[in-house]
Design a protein around this nucleic acid. Structure first.
Lengths: 170, 170
DNA sequence: GAAAGATTGATCCATATGGATCGACATGAC
DNA sequence: GTCATGTCGATCCATATGGATCAATCTTTC
């Protein structure tokens, strides 16, 4: 166990679950964000957006928010950066002149492939304490949490995040 | 399932685990951070710090970092805010004049109790898609990940976070 | 006990962030 | 058609963030 005494106490308290996932994610971000930000000089959300655009060619900016629950201006800025760097181009939408239809350029695909390879190694590293079976179990349970209505929509705070309407198809 | 099509595709890809925990945490933060920040007009890290100080009376500022892996100046500012609000007082350390020994005031304890009650409800809400047994399983697996050396110390990025030395007692 | 190095926590500064607003366009009611 | 309302994405602004640096203090070595 690489956890110190205080940490063990916290992870035995009432808020243990919240504290633990917060610990994992803050810790992981401190590693991951830096290596994306330093190595590629872009905020993490830019690479997330590039990932979404490459994966779903022609995706609209607002749809990216359904994949990465971030504020609208964050996505807007990320796309603007990606365009400036030549990693993304936008085609006009036929149906709606307000919409941006986004596509990754060859450059964008190339750099994304690099970043994805790095992230895969990071993923393997992060989950290395688990066996393959445990990883599957963990993933399945996390998926249940993600699919719960309460993740983005809390009874405790009204209007917390305005993603409710964002295309939650069956 | 309240997950849209694109999300399901992403959660079926190579980076599914990273994407999923990122989704859960970004989504949860969008809810939780706001209700702490709005309701109590303080950054989340201030409440985290207050939690740590109340739980471990006399804790040193640097030790808070072992519980919440955040940069040093973040904790420093959080404590400064808590002192300004009268939620925390500092006693001098006998052994080292540089150290701050931190204690929650009565006011601090009162407000922390409120915030903790809210967080408990949020925790219950967030994990409500899981049965009690599933919650235990999830927690156990997450604990394994947290205890792995790779969380804070990646082979992929040297010197990612300087918490290695921070009292990881057995 | 003087000097070099390490450690604690505060502060500086450039950048990232999110809430609010804005302009452009779309849709619906009449 | 006109007007009200809704939605998309860009921008404004105040604040939060993290890396770097700083002063103060402690430790080590001689």
């Amino acid at each position: 166990m690489a956890l110190n005494e205080k940490l063990k106490t916290v992870f035995a308290g009432d808020l243990r679950e919240l504290m633990l996932i917060s610990y994992i994610v803050l810790g992981n971000n401190a590693v991951t964000n830096r290596f994306i930000e330093r190595g590629y000089d872009m905020p993490v959300h830019a690479w997330s957006s590039l990932y979404a655009i490459d994966r779903f060619p022609g995706i609209r900016a607002k749809e990216i928010r359904t994949i990465f629950p971030r504020p609208q201006n964050t996505i807007s800025r990320a796309i603007s950066l990606l365009e400036k760097r030549g990693y993304v181009r936008q085609g006009a939408s036929e149906s709606d002149a307000r919409e941006k239809r986004l596509f990754a350029t060859a450059d964008g695909q190339r750099i994304l492939a690099e970043m994805t390879a790095l992230s895969l190694r990071r993923q393997a590293e992060l989950f290395s304490p688990l066996t393959a079976e445990e990883r599957d179990t963990f993933f399945g349970l996390a998926l249940k949490i993600a699919a719960g209505q309460n993740l983005l929509d809390s009874a405790l705070v009204s209007g917390a995040i305005d993603l409710h309407d964002m295309g939650s198809a069956a």
